[in-house]
Write a protein that binds this DNA or RNA. Structure first.
Lengths: 343, 343
DNA sequence: AGTGCTATGATAGACGGGTTCTTTTGTCTA
DNA sequence: TAGACAAAAGAACCCGTCTATCATAGCACT
């Protein structure tokens, strides 16, 4: 079989040599025109351009990458695109990437199966990427033992620090302290916690922050409740608390959706927010979905996180890769679901 | 300056030749081992594998792509990752891509600036993609005149049909008919419309569906209201309608967020939903954010759309690219915000 | 005529993986 | 011991872009 240049569609992409032949010039000259180099006669330039147009020439990404060893794309591996945390990660990184004239190569791992860093890295490394970013929203089984591939920048988005890999995340521990301090200042002490699923890394840190804040004030934390981030799960938890805990004065829900559900549950139980119970959430994610959003919450600067992630995954020459752990603080947004407790 | 093999970090990736040298064999033998081909002595195989391990060999994406003319990635261009429509598009396509063992190369265009198909195509074509997908959430100025690049599959995600490009979308016109029929069957005739921003393609079709449905029944459509997809804008519109229109019996909001806002506004105005006014939305997007979501709406099968988009952008051999326009119907979800109007 | 400049061509090589063709090595048999 | 045959390994080359030489032709200005 004749060597039909590889591409199994049968159509081969137009190369510089093709253009050169069509324009009756050397490949060298085509290169000069393509790259806007000087020393080309205006007439010749026109002729070459016309040939390019005619044939639909576009430089081969593979050839160029092979040549200069860069892909101008950064790999991003997440388990589920639609989760708020992942989405906001993609958004932040996309905008940082755009600033660097870079694309994102997105790989979605199975939404359900377990997820090893080695596996994720292996898949990403087979793609055209100048750096690897892995969103670790749940603890990977091989986190401790994981070694990044040599020769390619790797960043894990997670709160856990790693001795050999740079990790970046919003400060999911600190946000709890911000909220708890706010509640303490108002005079609250009996602060219940509605968390996300316990396998979630974000959950683990938000919860730890809540617990530590209480213990630092020598308050015994009451049993935390576990939701699944959804408003309905927040509702269930809120309902349960309204019925069984008559000493609580505040609820800290680990995200805004659950907080929103909890508020609905409290009101359905005849409790007023914030007069009877204060409620806080995290993420500042309700605005599009809820009219007159009044929830006190913490907002993260997701674009800053995106930039940090990107720039550590694809370091500029000089920013040689020292392993660091970056935690980007959130900002307390006080609205109207928090007030001083009943006297 | 010595030609430090291009990669300006100074580290060059490990090639087959490096492995071959280390293992004391030829590069071809390394290739044979790498690709699991026969005719390699077991001992040699071991030795080569050891060398690969040692040096951290991974095959070069560029080299391989150059050779076989495929990238195993599909390009996706959107203007704003976070918008519900785009997000659900990414999600659907990501899962289709995964089934084909393919990655997504994501490019985010400016969120604000105008957006031409030619420009989007030009940028995507410079990337490692086997197909190009462009999300056109607002009409591109060059839609009519646009010619797809020859030699690469191109799909535009939009409701508009195009003579030379395959377009795929959820049926944003048909969803209106579903909802209107539902309302008609309940006995509604005075159905107000709260739309998204008028530049949005989805908005244009959802609104056209509303209008056509009314006109088909010889009902004069009352002035549509324009929101910005957010719950707050739905609230404003709902407030306005509650105060100024005492004949309406139903509101069709062009997405769930605005519907949710409108419901809040109606209730704040002393109207009951659905007893006094029925409300419907589109997207079925509230579940995570609102407890006990009761909104009657239309749900789209976004994964099916993703599959269609993907498979037309990267056609299997044989599915040669005939230009088609695919509209995927939504499904009516009747919950509890719709009822027969007051007698 | 000589100098210096611009425009272009011819040729080659680097980048890394993979295929094809050829050669070497080793084993078994007549 | 020679011949047959298969396994193992090597040599060469292609994919497309870009750069680096070097050569050559043409033109202008002294």
């Amino acid at each position: 079989m004749a060597r039909r240049p590889s591409n199994d569609t049968g159509t081969r992409s137009v190369s510089m040599a093709d253009v050169a032949r069509a324009a009756g010039v050397s490949q060298q000259t085509v290169s000069r025109v393509a790259n806007g180099l000087p020393n080309v006669n205006e007439q010749t330039r026109q002729r070459v351009r016309a040939a390019m147009q005619e044939l639909g020439f576009r430089p081969s990404y593979a050839g160029r990458s092979l040549r200069d060893g860069r892909y101008h794309s950064v790999g991003l591996c997440v388990n589920d695109v639609t989760k708020f945390g992942n989405l906001s990660m993609i958004d932040g990184i996309a905008s940082a990437a755009r600033e660097h004239n870079c694309a994102i190569t997105l790989v979605e791992m199975s939404k359900t199966e377990e997820f090893s860093l080695a596996e994720a890295t292996r898949r990403m490394a087979a793609l055209p990427v100048d750096g690897i970013i892995i969103g670790m929203s749940r603890m990977a089984p091989d986190f401790e033992t994981f070694d990044p591939l040599p020769g390619i920048g790797t960043v894990i988005v997670t709160m856990y620090a790693h001795p050999r890999v740079t990790t970046v995340d919003s400060d999911h521990y600190g946000c709890s302290l911000l909220l708890m301090d706010h509640l303490f200042e108002l005079g609250h002490e009996q602060i219940r916690y509605i968390g996300g699923p316990s396998f979630s890394v974000d959950e683990q840190f938000r919860r730890a922050g809540w617990q530590d804040a209480l213990e630092r004030k020598h308050i015994e934390p009451a049993e935390p409740l576990e939701g699944d981030w959804s408003a309905n799960s927040g509702y269930e938890a809120g309902r349960h608390l309204a019925e069984h805990d008559h000493t609580m004065t505040a609820i800290y829900a680990a995200n805004d959706q659950m907080a929103n559900g909890a508020i609905a549950a409290l009101r359905d139980s005849g409790l007023r927010v914030p007069e009877d119970v204060s409620v806080v959430g995290v993420d500042d994610s309700l605005d599009d979905f809820v009219a007159h959003n009044e929830l006190t919450t913490v907002r993260f600067d997701l674009h800053q996180r995106g930039r940090e992630v990107f720039e550590h995954a694809v370091p500029e020459a000089g920013t040689a890769g020292k392993t660091v752990a970056i935690r980007i603080p959130g900002q307390l947004i006080v609205r109207h679901t928090t007030a001083a407790p009943r006297a």
